[in-house]
Design a protein around this nucleic acid. Structure first.
Lengths: 215, 215
DNA sequence: TGTACATCAGTGAACGCGCGTTCACTGATGTAC
DNA sequence: TGTACATCAGTGAACGCGCGTTCACTGATGTAC
C-alpha cells in the first residue's frame, strides 16, 4: 500500500519538499480505508511522517484539504470520462457505452476520490476551483448527451441537460448502491457495469436511440 | 423542532419510561442536522435529557442505535412505497408513477432516515431485522416491476429483478444528487420529482411500456 | 563567489474539548406470597 | 391488602483517548548585492 506511513527517511531533512502532495495521498488512503468521515487531519500528518502542525502550512484546515481532494477527484474524473468518450469516436453510441463503463470504473477504482466528491458532504462552493472542476466533469456528460441527441430527428429531441442529468443519476445510483464491494450490501445477479449498461440501453431505446433490436 | 432537548420535566421522575423511543427521535434530529457522522451518542443522551450512561441500557453502543434507526427507516420507507403503489390501482402505470414520487418524497421529507439507510455506512447485516426490513422495501419495488412487466407480450419481458434494480438506481441517483436542498449543490431547471418522472417515462418507453406518445 | 538576511516550511509541546465507555451506586417498579 | 425482595432503568463521576488548533521556535532555502 503505497500511501502507508512514509518510513523515517533520514535523508529527508528538515524540509519535506513535497508535503502538500503527500498529505493529499495520505488523505486518499485514509478515506479509502475508513470513509470520508473516519479521516482526520492529525492522522494524515502522521501518515505523511510529519508533525500535526505541519499541514497548516498547506491547508487552512481539514475541510480545505477535503475540498482539495474533491477538486482533484473531479479533475481526474473529467479526464477519465473525456478519454472514454474520445469525442464520440467511432460513433456516439459506442462511445457512450464506453463512457458508462468509465464512470463505474472510476467509482470502483478510486473509491476515495468518489466519496470525497459525492459522499463527504463537501459543498461545491467550498472553492471556485472545486465548482469549476465539477462543472467541467458534468459538461463532459452533457456534450456526450448532445452528440447522441443529434442523431434523432429534429422533432424528437429531448433537452440535452435533462438527458445528461438522467445519465448522471442512473450512473451515480448504480455506483453508490452496487458499485463498491463494501461487505454487507446486496448481492447482484450481474455486475454493476452490466447493470448500468443494460439500464442505459433501455433508456436510449426509450429516446428512440435503440440499436436495432438484435443489437 | 419537536426533537430538541426535552425540558427538565420535573414530572418525569427517576425513570424516563420511554427513553428508547426518545433516543431514536433525538438521533433522527441530530442526523438531520449534522449528517449521520456528526451525530454522537453522548449528544443524543443530552437531547433526551438523560445522563450519558443511560443509553447503554437500551443500545449496545452507538452503532446499534444507528442500525435501529436505519431499520425503522426501511420499515417506514416500505410502508410509504406500499401505500403509494396501492397494489397497482387503478392501473400499474399510474401506480408506478405514484411510487416514484413517493420515493423522492421520502428522501426529501425524511432525510435523516434516508441517510441512515443509505449514506451512514451501516452494514445491512448489522442485524437480521435491518436486513429483513431492507429486503421487504426492495421487494416492494420488485413487485411493482413485475406488475408492469406483466403488461408486456410474453416474448419481450425483461427480468423483473433487473428492472427493479434500475428503478432503484435511478431513484436513488436522483434523490442523492438532487433530492435534498443541501446548499451548494447544482441548481436544476426542474424539480427532482419531475426529473425522476421524466427519466422513468423514457425508461418505460424503452421497455415498450410507453403511454401512447401524446401522454 | 561570498555573505547577510528575509522568508519559508518545518518542530514539538501544549491547550481545551467532547467523545465513548465503565463503574459502583440508587431510586422506582413489579411480583410472590 | 401488605410486605419483602428481585429486577429494572436510571445517576454521576471518572477514565483514557485522539482530535483540531495555536504558539514560539528553528533549521533550510533563496536572493540581493
Amino acid at each position: 500500500m503505497s500511501w502507508k506511513r512514509t518510513p523515517p527517511d533520514p535523508s529527508r531533512g528538515y524540509h519535506h519538499g513535497n508535503l502538500k502532495e503527500e498529505l493529499v495521498r495520505a488523505a486518499l488512503g485514509l478515506i479509502g480505508e475508513k470513509g470520508p468521515n473516519g479521516f482526520t487531519f492529525a492522522e494524515a500528518a502522521r501518515v505523511a511522517g510529519v508533525s500535526p502542525a505541519a499541514p497548516y502550512r498547506h491547508f487552512r484546515d481539514k475541510d480545505a484539504l477535503l475540498a482539495d481532494v474533491a477538486t482533484r477527484g473531479f479533475q481526474a474524473f473529467e479526464a477519465a470520462l473525456a478519454r472514454a468518450w474520445d469525442q464520440g469516436r467511432p460513433d456516439p453510441e459506442t462511445a457512450f457505452h464506453r463512457l458508462g463503463r468509465a464512470y463505474l470504473a472510476f467509482a470502483h477504482d478510486e473509491p476515495a476520490y468518489y466519496s470525497a466528491m459525492f459522499e463527504a458532504g463537501v459543498p461545491l462552493d467550498a472553492s471556485p476551483e472545486l465548482r469549476a472542476a465539477a462543472d467541467r466533469a458534468f459538461q463532459g456528460l452533457r456534450s456526450a448527451s448532445e452528440a447522441l441527441i443529434a442523431l434523432l430527428p429534429a422533432g424528437k429531441r429531448p433537452p440535452a441537460l435533462m438527458m445528461a442529468l438522467h445519465v448522471w443519476a442512473m450512473s451515480h445510483g448504480v455506483a453508490a448502491l452496487f458499485g463498491r464491494a463494501d461487505g454487507g450490501r446486496r448481492p447482484l445477479p450481474m455486475s454493476a457495469a452490466e447493470l448500468l449498461e443494460a439500464g442505459m440501453l433501455v433508456y436510449l431505446q426509450g429516446l428512440g436511440l435503440g440499436r436495432d433490436k438484435a443489437g
